[in-house]
Design a protein around this nucleic acid. Structure first.
Lengths: 144, 144
DNA sequence: TATTGCGTAACAAATGGTGTTACAGAATGA
DNA sequence: TCATTCTGTAACACCATTTGTTACGCAATA
């Protein structure tokens, strides 16, 4: 029952930076083309970001998606949190004999280790605004 | 496509410590009872540990499983490595447009962050011998 | 030689992201 | 008003991975 880290975070970072660089509104259709996927998947995933104030959407003719904040104001951690409420790195403990001291001790070690790793990950995510990704991308594009 | 951290590590820590505390050989049948699971699952998983020299097995009457090292010589990291060859925390990047600078930059941030988190996790796992889990378990059992 | 226990193949179930179709609702513009 | 163009969402099927299970072969031993 694990919440494995999926490909949504990478895809969302990718598309959010593109949206900022393009400036205007983008439809699910066009975003889906950017991500080589389906418009419904895009709405589903961007919908989670909208619930956290990262993007906004409008229906009807001329509608679509746009950023609700600047790239400087969005960190990787913000996007991660929008996509998944729980821990980024769940502990993966066992619960075969909840009262067994050995199982408890084993689980405790794993929980502590994961908490430390998660703290490190969240620290880095939180210190990484999307504007930094945009800057690195432009640098690369120029250099190449 | 993630290699999510599954429940095998926790289960193996649990059973290895029990095996050490019990001292002798244990059959898949008895171990399965400890873990509330099936003997085949036990053979499957312990088989991976045997391939890394952590446990040994013998068939036939009077056979079963026993530790190949002492708990002091086995770290959580050893068990983790035996269960899964690759990274503990795979990066979860996207590959929709491998030549897109924005995708590359997004992936790079994620890869770097995961590498740091994984290093932290491996550091803790490597510094945690199973004897420490056994000690903590006995402490708890005594205290309670 | 009968029993015990591992080794392994084969298959079902559950989980969670993904891909897809279908359709309802809202905004826009002629 | 009405057709068009969007999002919102339900309802599936699909894929990959762990887990659970049955079945059977092989080795060791009393």
């Amino acid at each position: 029952m694990r919440m494995r880290s999926d490909g949504r975070l990478a895809r969302m970072l990718h598309v959010l930076v593109h949206m900022a660089l393009l400036g205007g509104r983008e439809t699910s259709e066009r975003i889906a083309e950017m991500l080589n996927t389906n418009p419904v998947v895009v709405r589903r995933t961007l919908g989670a970001l909208r619930a956290h104030g990262i993007v906004a959407s409008e229906g009807g003719r001329g509608g679509g998606w746009k950023l609700a904040k600047s790239l400087e104001e969005i960190t990787v951690l913000d996007v991660q949190r929008a996509l998944s409420a729980g821990p980024i790195l769940p502990a993966a403990t066992s619960s075969d004999h909840p009262s067994c001291p050995v199982e408890r001790a084993s689980n405790a070690v794993l929980v502590a280790a994961h908490a430390a790793a998660e703290a490190r990950l969240a620290e880095i995510y939180g210190a990484a605004p999307l504007s930094e990704i945009a800057r690195a991308a432009m640098e690369t594009a120029k250099g190449a």
